[in-house]
Simulated assay, not measured.
Amino acid sequence: MVAFTCAIVGVDTVFFSALTPLLPHYAAVAGLSKAGAGVLIGAYPAGTLIGSLPSGALVARFGDRSVALIGLGLMSLSTLAFGWLTAAPVLDMARFVQGIAGACTGTAALSGLATAAPRERRGELLGYDLGAAVVGALFGPVVGAVANAVGPGPAFSAASVAAGLLIAISFTVPAPRPEAPQRLRAALPALRDRQVVMGMWLMALAGIAFGVIDVLAPLRLSRLGSSGTVIAATFLCAALAESALSPLAGRMSDRFGPARPLTIALIAGIACSIVVPLTSTAPWLIAVLIAGTPFFGTLFTPASALVSEGSAGLGLHQGIGFALSNLTWAAGQATAASASGALAQATSDLVPYLLLAFACLGTLAVILRTRDGGQTTPSAPATPDARAPADERS
């Protein structure tokens, strides 16, 4: 189950992240401005936004495997269209359908793993799944670099074969134990639960961060003279660092509670948001992106653990819980991608990055205040053995 769900989310992020090094290419062939590039980047999370709640309802009614198959099929077809077409409206629509497919595969994969995982290891195993998403992001820029060399059509055609293979493999993987079907209205109590709401906001914040970076950073690197291959290598190295940090953040979340990894990630995110727009040479910008952006990605693991734990405590189907987190991530990334391009075009790159830094600072203040004040806050799972030191558990 872990291997299969890792493969699903990995393929999803391959298709998602392959656009980053190709953005200057599509800006040229489709005549995109910064605002148009932001719309293209934001089309994928916009599709995820629209598809999140329906995918959760489908998982709760028909099971994880059926919804994963729907997502993989849509992903393969929309990726083929994106590879061979160049008109801006068609590209936007293809990315939008990819986002709907990603909502289906992501909700199904995380729901299945969270259902099957032991409670005391849920954060760690979700960290592996999210780390696999980062591994997919490693290969996405590689696919983008290959597409720069041989053309998007052949490159994306080859990449879409992976989705077809996963469709075949899915019939050989045992499904997790079924949960009782639920309707979407069962999610209403979760919107008043502190753990779930905090997890949803952290998902949104991570989406906002990558919405800003994925639009502005590739265009800035291109203006500073970096080729598509160099841009791809930059994001590949950043994703490699994130893939190592995600399971670590999950283990820290299981043992000490999510507040500790969140504090580290937010401090690093604030520093990255301030330094990136002030860096004026390509080598230094590359170094800052590789060192700083992985910490935004580590927000996903404790956020997922919070949503999963809160959902379990409320008796909410994991598929609906992860649909809620997908919804907020997609809303954050879609809005930030579209708005940051337009805002940077009207002012400068510094303004969107500073707004991101303030959002991270405000979130950090809330986490520190609630933790120090003894209020309900992101904490370890509510089992004594999960919070006890290792020697006490022994």
Rank of each mutant, 00 (worst) to 15 (best):
Ala323Pro: 06
Leu306Trp: 12
Gly211Val: 02
Ala339Gly: 08
Gly297Arg: 06
Arg260Cys: 15
Ala330Glu: 06
Leu285Trp: 09
Thr347Ile: 13
Ala265Ser: 11
Phe295Trp: 14
Ser308Asp: 11
Leu224Asp: 12
Ala239His: 10
Leu278Thr: 14
Ile267Met: 07
Ala305Gln: 04
Ala209Glu: 11
Leu299Tyr: 08
Leu262Ile: 13
Val288Pro: 05
Ile274Val: 10
Thr298Gln: 03
Gly341Cys: 09
Phe256Ile: 12
Ile231Asn: 05
Pro294Gln: 05
Pro294His: 07
Gly332Ser: 12
Ala331Gln: 03
Glu242His: 10
Ser227Pro: 07
Val275Ser: 13
Ile270Pro: 06
Ala342Gly: 15
Leu248Cys: 14
Ala334Arg: 08
Pro218Asn: 04
Ala239Asp: 08
Asn326Pro: 01
Gly315Arg: 10
Gly315Ser: 09
Thr347Val: 13
Gly313Pro: 00
Thr281Asp: 08
Asp214Ile: 12
Leu240Trp: 07
Gly310Asp: 02
Asp254Leu: 12
Pro283Gly: 15
Ser280Asp: 12
Phe322Asn: 01
Trp284Arg: 00
Ala330Phe: 03
Leu299Lys: 10
Ala339Tyr: 07
Gly310Glu: 00
Ala238Trp: 01
Phe210Asp: 00
Met252Gly: 01
Ile320Ser: 00
Ile231Cys: 11
Ala334Gln: 11
Val212Trp: 09
Pro283Trp: 09
Thr279Leu: 12
Val212Ser: 06
Ile264Trp: 03
Gly310Asn: 01
Glu242Gly: 13
Gly269Asp: 00
Ala239Thr: 04
Cys272Val: 07
Ser308Lys: 00
Val230Asn: 13
Gly250Lys: 07
Phe322His: 05
Ala268Lys: 05
Glu242Ser: 14
Ser338Gly: 15
Trp284Phe: 02
Gly297Ala: 13
Ala287Gly: 15
Thr301Glu: 04
Gly211His: 09
Ser273Tyr: 10
Phe296Ser: 11
Gly332Asp: 05
Gly225Gln: 13
Phe295Arg: 10
Ala249Trp: 03
Ala244Thr: 10
Leu219Ser: 03
Gly228Tyr: 08
Trp284Asn: 00
Trp329Ala: 14
Ile208Glu: 05
Thr229Met: 06
Leu245Phe: 02
Gly315Leu: 04
Ala287Leu: 13
Ala217Val: 15
Ala241Ser: 03
